[in-house]
Every structure is written in C-alpha cells, then in structure tokens.
Write a protein that binds this DNA or RNA. Sequence first.
DNA 1: TTGAAAGCGGACTAATCAAGTCCTATTTAG
DNA 2: CTAAATAGGACTTGATTAGTCCGCTTTCAA
Lengths: 141, 141
Amino acid sequence: MISPLSSKMIRFSKKVEYALMALKFISASNPRLVTAREISDKVNIPYDLLSKILQRLKSEKILSSTQGTHGGYLLASSPDKIFLYEIMRAIDGDRALTECLISGKEGECGLEDSCSIKSPVTKLQKEVEELFKSKTISDFV
Amino acid sequence: MISPLSSKMIRFSKKVEYALMALKFISASNPRLVTAREISDKVNIPYDLLSKILQRLKSEKILSSTQGTHGGYLLASSPDKIFLYEIMRAIDGDRALTECLISGKEGECGLEDSCSIKSPVTKLQKEVEELFKSKTISDFV
DNA sequence: TTGAAAGCGGACTAATCAAGTCCTATTTAG
DNA sequence: CTAAATAGGACTTGATTAGTCCGCTTTCAA
C-alpha cells in the first residue's frame, strides 16, 4: 500500500492481490450479496480500482452480479472451482515468462529460430502454469 | 526484442532472459574465455546492457572474469550447480509474489495483520521458489 | 415517478520501473 | 603506451501499473 521502491518480477500485480482479497471476502460472506463499497471499506482497497476488478471478474464469469439498489456480487461457482490461474488471466490477460511464449505474439522476438533458450523456458512456463492452475480460492481461506 | 505492447506478470525480465542466453553461450564455449562483445554479437544482446548483466553475475560469483586485453568470462562453477533462482536473484534482486513477503519490507503494507491472504500466498511463494531452485543452467542446454 | 444506491465502463493522470544508453575509469597483453 | 577488455556510475526514455474521474444504466422503494 505504502510500498515505495518495490522489487521485481514474478509478482502479483496489485490488481491480482486485490482480486484475491475481494474474492476471499465474498466467499466468506456467502451466500450474502456483497457490494464493492463494502469490500472497499472492510479490506481497504481503492473503490474505483476495486470496481473495475470486480467488473472484470464478472465479465469473465468468475463472479455474478446483480445491479440496482440492493445489488452486489456473488461467486459464480464454488470456491474450489475458481482457479488462481483463471483469476490472473481474467485480470492481467495472457502472460508468460517471455513474450514469445504468448500465442499470437510469437513472431516478435527477432531471435526466434536462433533463440537458444526457448524450449527449456517453455517447459518451465508449463510448470509455473500448472502451479497456478492447482490453486483455487478455497486455498486462500 | 521488437515486442511492442507486451503482456503481464510472471515474466522474466529481459535481463534474466539475456543472462540465461549468455550463460548458455558461455557454458557451450567452455573452457574458452568468452568476451561480452562476442556474446553481444552472436546472441544479439545490447552490449552495454549485457556488460552490466555479466558484471552482476560476476559479483554474485556465478561467473568468474579476467580483465585486460585477452580477458573474458567463464562459469564460476559447473552448469548443473548454477540455479535459475540464484541467477534471478543476482540480477533482479529479492523478489516475491507480494511486497510484504520480501524480508526487510514487511512493515510497508498497511494491512499486515489484517491481511487476509498472506499465509496462503506465502505457501505459494515457496512453491514458486522451489521450482526456480530446481532448474540449473544445464537444464537450459 | 423519482431519487438514491448500486453496477458498468470509457478516458484520463500519475507514478513507477524496466530497458537501454553514455561516459569514464581500471586492468593487462603485446 | 595503446588497444582491448572488464568495471561501474549516472542518466534517459518508454511502457506499464496503479489509481482517478466522470457519466451512464439498472433497480428498488418511498
């Protein structure tokens, strides 16, 4: 929150952090409908930013929402069916250890064929993904 | 290299990418002394940047160097003893999934005790670290 | 039927950081 | 003593993240 000179790589974005905290809160409040305002207050996340995050999670079918006066959010499925990998993907988009491993962006490296580390990094990438696919919201309780 | 609008999180920094390529090159040239210039040319890495990286790897005892006219770099130990984790640490410094998991920066979050996800993220952090500790330069050949 | 409370969402700003550059030592072989 | 190499500080730039602002739509209830 205050954190000035942060560190490096292999980090959750703040958005993902916030998403995890919010999802945990929503999960814990189940089956009550929870508003962005409430989460923002209780968990101490900037309201506008949180709103965007929740909307994103909604549009990616991780949350369901109801609009209007007594609206709010609910988990769209049970906590043990919501995978960290999907959350990260929903919020930060496709990601990989290197640019060239993201599908659709393969041609942009310049090294490509001559790239000496592509194949081993691909393997590592898979392992990292597996790790994130193995975690669900219920692991964060 | 060209890569304009890149993606997100869970990425190697370019520096780490370059380090891996350079280390692989040096490893493959063993026991010949290799210069930064040669690596820069052959592997297509900006010379100045590469120099810094190699110097860093040297100061972290991953490489050994000799200065002067016929100077250059060598692996400081055998490829299977040089761990990815150490390389990343040498170049990007301490890193973790969240700010608050980096030792010495624990107090900067503002949530801290009330933080709802710290303990599960800590566990995940360990798993990621294990993954990076399990890889060595020899895996990148 | 209207106003307040909620979600929806685009556009913008500010701060941070990675990537890359530049410049000047220092070391050493020939 | 000069050229080729490592060593390393300081700086610039551009991209990306984090956060803000503003207006719209939906829904409920007085």
